[in-house]
Amino acid sequence: MNYKTVYTILNNDLKKIENELEYVLDAHSQLLKESSLHYLQAGGKRIRPVFVLLSAKFGNYNFQIVKDVAVSLELIHMASLIHDDVIDDAYTRRGRPTVKAKWDNKISMYTGDYILARALEIITGLNNVEAHKILSKTMVELSIGEIEQIRDKYNFEQTITNYFRRIKRKTALLIAASCQLGGIAADVPRDVHIKLAKFGYYAGMAFQITDDILDFTSTEAKLGKPAGEDLLQGNITLPVLLAIKNPDVKSQIEKVNEYMDSDELSAIIELIKNTGAINKAMQISNLYLQKANQVLNDLPPNPTKKLLGTMLKFIGKRNF
């Protein structure tokens, strides 16, 4: 089974979620409607809704309730992408102009805030205090993760622990929340939704490490943004931290700055690849996937376990 099968199995519900996303972003202002729907129409993996749906299958799967959770989490993710593109000064995402490129920073700010408000309006349909405590903490942590990413830019002295803490906040916690809230929405027992959160956390860590590897190994056509962009922006990711253990390589990498031309950057990317750092980073990603698999084994017997396992394989092997 590959990940496409999972999407096929969930196809009906994912389609309804897609329609709902479009419906809830139907703003009065034509421009706001267009800017809100801009990333939605660009597609995407919808990883968070997929995890919500799969996790909910461990309990009383009521699509009307689960749908709201899935829609909200995707909206939160979408709002953060719109704001991220202002932060990163990004002009393309998924091969299309960003909201900031098509309109401007102001429209991006208002659109992101609008989408976030819609997400909170919808998620409050879930009358479960614990779910809101989890999600709100996740959102605060997500911002702190991003703030600390700016603080640590071009800081080649930062530790790997620092990196792990940052990616936990900026990516893993939202995926963990997707799994846990999916479970809560389906009234699974507490020990089960805690396990689902752990599963999501490990999967999310692996997902982000893979993302960081792809910045070095993939192409602009596949990424929808230039390769090496993270490094150019000063985001010190796992492959870089592993590569700079070699002092000679470190002295070269430390030359990176946002004005560096593409030839120089390409040479440094090659240098990083030649250290074996990419393979080591993959091994670490695999360790997280193994941990996720262990948690999966601990979950109660359910046919959905196989689908979650397939999603883990997809995270490990994805090249886009």
């Binding site: 202002v86 805030d113 976030l116 909170l120 409050t124 809101h132 605060v140 703030i147």
Partner: peptide
């Protein structure tokens, strides 16, 4: 400064949700 201004706004907005969810008052969040 622009980058941090975006993130500061997101951080403050997360705090509103956080504090009301811990009160807790879901209807007020809505």
């Amino acid at each position: 400064k622009r980058q941090l201004t975006v993130l500061a706004g997101d951080f403050y907005s997360g705090l509103y949700y956080y504090s009301l969810s811990h009160l807790p008052n879901i209807q007020m969040i809505r």
